[in-house]
Design a protein around this nucleic acid. Structure first.
Lengths: 234, 234
DNA sequence: GTTTGTGAAAGGATTCACAGCA
DNA sequence: TGCTGTGAATCCTTTCACAAAC
């Protein structure tokens, strides 16, 4: 936090090198802070915040220190101030336009999910390749055909695409998104997408977490000694 | 892989110490391997697998080496064999019974999601606290009231609970699950759950990934346009 | 020749512990 | 006194590079 970086005409505290691990936790802090603010809290200590998100206070402090020095010794952090700085760091003040492709069960859930709009994302369009779905009204939006993608991107300045199609069509949709100029993609389809350099893909896999849970559950059962042996032995 | 560990009455190659980072990737390998098997491939090299999942071949080899020594030098890995060993390591051969609480949009999507059942999970029951939803038929299952939870756990030996309720009721549902004896919980609600020691909670937050994407998109826009020179790395 | 398995090196992330400030 | 901010130490993860095996 000591050195400075020139951005345009102004210098401001360097926040360029925020570690990935920290970035991944900022949304979690943000949610906790919103909850605190709703509850009427004005300040919060690293210890209290750590309690809320499940972690150590030192980690919280180090994370927040990457955004700048916004705490007060002996007191803690101002909730509203932290919300502002984290939101800005995450780019949530930009009001990104998002296009959602695929309005099956999951797409429906995503279109109606408050967590997107409440964090500054604007769903610019809902697309689906199934002609039977086109025209359907979901969360106040009319579903449009995937062929409208180029128009949508041009009209609304979409920079983030969300893929909630079946696995089979995900790569095709992805290619179209990239071709249309979308550089950030959130993929809910159960496939690993291939994209050119310069495009950022993140994947949310509903079953991966369940499998990780299974691993731990399995270990717990095994170490509890209840299951003598399973499958192949050495 | 050299030392041994006693489990019950037998010794077998130690696989107890699989690093978390590796565990998190095993489901991804598993999916790629299933796709390869469907495509008719019988062997795969670490390099090819790395290509498919997006990573380095050394990482793949080190990951797989934690399961044992199942590759053949000069050849690669047997696809089917790897599928078996990874599945077993993840405990997917146990056929865990899962109870899903909350059958709103997201719950619907989860109940119909093939990725659960195709990986050996069995949805033992669907529960909802809304009396209006009880009795509804989803994916061949009839929705039952949350008050049936104890019965469900007793009857079906459920060990994993999935929470897909609104945030407001998630902690309550979580408490009931814990009380009923469930020790692994997958939480889709946008809150951080508090649980006693010995209970494993994993959270999937649909908007967290979008916010991380926003961070990178923001950085890209900043460094592409306005920032003259240094500061922003990558 | 090809590809695995793995020590060793390098790079990150977390935790410790305390100086410094309100 | 209470709590932040941060070097230093520790732990974990990734990458390198190559001997061993096919």
């Amino acid at each position: 936090m000591t050195d400075q970086v020139r951005v345009g005409e102004v210098t401001r505290p360097r926040r360029a090198g925020v570690p990935e691990a920290t970035v991944a936790r900022l949304p979690v802090y943000l949610r906790a802070l919103h909850a605190l603010a709703e509850g009427g809290a004005t300040t919060v200590s690293s210890e209290a915040l750590a309690q809320l998100v499940g972690g150590g206070s030192a980690k919280v402090r180090k994370d927040l220190s990457h955004l700048g020095s916004y705490g007060t010794r002996g007191v803690g952090y101002q909730v509203e101030e932290l919300v502002f700085h984290i939101s800005r760091e995450l780019g949530l003040t930009q009001g990104w336009a998002v296009v959602l492709v695929g309005v099956g069960n999951l797409g429906h859930a995503l279109a109606g999910y408050g967590g997107f709009t409440s964090r500054g994302f604007r769903i610019a369009a809902l697309l689906d390749s199934d002609p039977g779905r086109v025209g359907e009204l979901i969360a106040g939006q009319r579903v449009r055909p995937v062929s409208d993608l180029d128009d949508v991107v041009r009209e609304t300045g979409v920079s983030i695409g969300v893929i909630a199609t079946p696995g089979a069509s995900a790569q095709d949709v992805c290619d179209r998104l990239v071709l249309a100029g979308v550089t950030s993609i959130l993929n809910f389809a159960p496939v690993v997408l291939q994209v050119p350099d310069g495009v950022d893909v993140r994947k949310v896999d509903l079953s991966v977490e369940l499998q990780i849970l299974s691993f731990h559950q399995n270990r717990r059962v095994l170490s509890a000694g209840l299951v003598p042996e399973q499958g192949v032995s050495a």
